[in-house]
Amino acid sequence: MQITINKPGVLSTVQDMGRWEYLSQAVPISGPMDSLSARIANIALGNNKDAPIIEFTYSVAEFNVDAPVLIAYAGEGAVLKCGNKLLPPNRPLFIPGGQTITLQNNGNGSRTYLAIAGGFDVPVILGSCSTYLPATIGGMDGRALRAGDVLKGKDIFTALNQVLIAHLSGDVIAFRKWSVSKQALGLNHTNTIRVISGPESSWFDQASVNTLFNTAFTISLQSNRMGYRLEGPKMQRINSSELLSTAVTMGTIQVTGIGDLILLMADCQTTGGYPRIAQVASVDLPLCGQLKPSDQIFFKEISRAEAEMLYIEQEQNLQKAKAALNARFL
């Protein structure tokens, strides 16, 4: 199976669940900005969790299906269409050869994830297929996708891949009413992001911390896969301590020297020297991954223990979604 990129859109990269083994050498984790949607696309096809997918940013992109493929997509950046026919998300889609698929804006979010049965076949670099553009590693030669790129799928199928291919194959586009229910997975459309207290939150005055939780912040234009700059009230320090560079991770909210917030995202560096006022709860990172410049967000504080419980619930729900699909087709 393979697809050919006609129009790459604003930024399209191959990602998997991230590069975790070289953080001590300052190699970022990378991976999808909205890992939940990326995982749903893979689950819908019966792929393994680490099967490489394509992350599309916004719409405009277009690809050709030269020969029959089984694909699935998820996320909030766009809907897929074949001509005028809407292809629904979160479920396996059989596309016969000779079709052109376009991504059309659905106005909700910014990123869409495309999975192919078996996963896209790109080399494993430092233990991962994820693209990290600043060091030109991973994905398609370490770069964003371009028009004319042919992305092949791996010809190694899971049992569920094979059953779904057999079930849907034919001369026409085929899918069923069944889908992985996103609501069941707990992702709601909200711009309230839950956070836990950051290690240096006590370095800021109480009024600033209150502001953090009762004021809207706006995603600035200076935002990318490394992080988002947030526009809003400035945070005031109550001490002048310098933080020695230490670990930061996706979801860390740093405060710059002039009091602005930076929300670190998938390609963020492994260490940083700005004080960390808060940390986005893991379950809400996918929401952050769908934000775009000029979107407003609010922060709400929860306890670390609650954040962990939410994370574990979500993981269990994903396992259930996977089990439901297996039970249905295997």
């Binding site: 975790w20 953080l23 001590s24 020695l244 560079s245 230490t246 670990a247 991770t249 492994t270």
Partner: peptide, 13 residues
């Protein structure tokens, strides 16, 4: 999973 050593901290993933 892994560790990130820094100036005065060791972070464990």
């Amino acid at each position: 999973i892994t560790t990130v050593p820094a100036y005065s901290t060791l972070t464990v993933y």
